[in-house]
């Protein structure tokens, strides 16, 4: 625990010196160095802004259980044992960011590449439209993460992790199954497409 306290102290110092204009609740401060004061993401960690508390909480549990693997994040997740504090942090990040302009299914018919995969899927490979779970403009909701505006490199890493079974935790391994059908070029295209949705 001392180590975590030390990390927190360091972060607090960091915040006071560099981010004093932003009012990050105390509960969320330990996340700032990697995820940014508004959850916008940094080179050290993905965007959290606009993810639901439900989704983020499930990921924290996955890092603790080992269904998701990341040395730093597992350490951080284990430090978030006070559920009240955890919820405060998650609520803060869930409210950050701005909603993208909504594109619904059917708004555009002539589509190609990642956009087509997102809105139409590929019936010939039994790939459902990503839209079916991640919603209009990939805003996400409930257990489904917002993908809009997420870092391209992170999205790519996650789809690869699903493929390689380095990431799990969803019922019936549905996302892992879907990811396993994607080609490398599709993963790159989807990551780029989704990260560009603002």
């Amino acid at each position: 625990m001392n180590k975590h306290l030390a990390i927190s102290s360091l972060l607090t110092l960091f915040l006071v010196n560099h981010a004093s204009a932003v009012e990050v609740p105390e509960a969320a401060q330990s996340c700032v160095v990697c995820h940014g004061a508004q959850g916008q993401g940094t080179s050290q960690g993905p965007k959290l802004a606009g993810l639901t508390s439900l989704y983020m909480n499930a990921q924290i549990e996955h890092f603790i259980s080992g269904e998701r693997k990341n040395v730093v994040m597992t350490l951080m997740a284990e430090s978030l044992v006070d559920l009240n504090v955890r919820q405060q942090a998650l609520a803060y990040y869930a409210e950050q960011g701005t909603a993208p302009e909504l594109q619904k299914r059917g708004d555009t018919l002539v589509q190609s590449g990642a956009e087509k995969l997102y809105y139409q899927g590929d019936p010939h490979r039994s790939l459902p439209a990503c839209y079916s779970c991640h919603g209009p403009s990939a805003v996400g909701g409930g257990p489904f993460p917002r993908l809009a505006g997420q870092q391209s490199s992170y999205l790519k890493d996650q789809l690869v992790a699903w493929q390689k079974k380095q990431r799990s935790g969803d019922p019936d391994n549905t996302m892992g199954h879907i990811a396993s059908k994607l080609k490398d070029s599709e993963i790159q295209a989807l990551a780029d497409y989704l990260s560009a949705i603002q």
Binding site: G135, P136, V139, G142, P171, D172
Partner: peptide
């Protein structure tokens, strides 16, 4: 075990950004 996560514990489906999705 298999359905509630997507369709909701009360079978209510799921709305995202005011758009019914599930």
């Amino acid at each position: 075990q298999h359905c509630a996560l997507c369709h909701g514990s009360e079978g209510q489906g799921r709305v995202m950004a005011d758009v019914p999705v599930i």
